[in-house]
């Protein structure tokens, strides 16, 4: 055995010896935490709450109505009413309003950036409330902008409520009969393949990290990532093949069977009634 193989490495000291490698890790962390929210973020699914007690299909349709109600709300009053509805719904389902806000925040920030010109006089003329660098923010612009942001926020809030309280299987089950089976299967397979892709990328980054002795710079990391993408995709495809075979082996023939939805109760009808009422109201007002 060569002598160097017997030398111990775990010594104290050395600058940045245990520093982590920011770029690749951060990127992957961000992607996977986002995916986990989308596919796997039903933290409140097991709680006893109003939304959780509704039949999945009813839950999806009702939320859908509410999203539309928010989209159609033309007056501040109707929008406020919808926001109120969202908060009550969250509270009755055991979801903290703060949690919901956190989920909605990215959508709010994104919308704010996209629509930011609306605040200014060159898009929305009117009485200036704030002047800076030769541009003016107008009262009308502020009103319009805040209204749009609030509306997107509520729509995102309802969607987040649905995802927080509805597990993947309930979601797929609920969509049965609402959308063609082939879409559900496609959606499901997309979930799976995306997760495989992420896991492969993560493993691949981890494997590299464990072999990296000194910290590497950003450019190296990015270069590595670019060359690895090919490998990662190939690996993903072959794993995805195996995954499909494993499903076929277990009797999957292209459409998913799941537990039948339960019978509808009075509560379910009431929820649909209320939400469609909200939709009609906001469309009319």
């Amino acid at each position: 055995m060569p002598v160097w193989l017997k030398e111990a490495k775990a010594r104290r000291g050395g600058e940045g010896a245990f520093k982590s490698e920011a770029f690749v890790e951060k990127t992957l962390d961000n992607i996977s935490s986002f995916m986990k929210v989308v596919f796997d973020g039903a933290e409140y699914a097991g709680k006893n709450g109003l939304l959780q007690s509704l039949e999945p299909k009813v839950r999806i349709i009702g939320i859908f109505f509410l999203v539309f109600a928010a989209a159609l709300a033309g007056k501040a009053l109707s929008l406020l009413a919808v926001i109120f509805f969202a908060i009550v719904l969250a509270l009755l389902s055991g979801v903290e309003v703060l949690k919901l806000l956190k989920r909605v925040m990215p959508a709010l920030i994104f919308t704010s950036i996209i629509i930011s010109p609306v605040f200014f006089s060159f898009v929305t003329p009117g009485s200036a409330v704030l002047k800076a660098w030769g541009m003016a923010v107008t009262k009308e612009g502020l009103e319009t902008g805040v209204f749009i942001i609030a509306r997107v926020g509520v729509m995102a809030g309802f969607t987040a409520l649905l995802l927080l309280t509805t597990g993947q299987s309930d979601l797929l089950k609920g969509m049965r009969g609402l959308v063609p089976a082939v879409f559900i299967t496609a959606l499901f397979m997309t979930f799976r393949y995306t997760l495989i892709l992420l896991r492969t990328a993560e493993d691949s980054a981890l494997a590299r990290k464990s072999r990296t002795i000194t910290g590497t710079n950003l450019r190296d990391s990015q270069g590595w990532f670019a060359t690895r993408v090919g490998f990662i995709l190939k690996k993903t495809v072959s794993t995805a093949d195996e995954v499909t075979l494993a499903m076929v082996s277990r009797g999957f023939t292209g459409r998913m069977n799941s537990f039948e939805g339960r019978r509808l109760h009075g509560k379910d009808f009431m929820f649909i009634g209320l939400t469609s009422f909200a939709l009609i109201l906001s469309a009319g007002l």
Binding site: A42, R192, R199, V243, A246
Partner: peptide, 14 residues
């Protein structure tokens, strides 16, 4: 029935 070598390939339910 087939139990694959790599269980991650086989398991997917929530």
């Amino acid at each position: 029935s087939f139990v694959f070598a790599e269980p991650d390939v086989q398991l997917f339910s929530p």
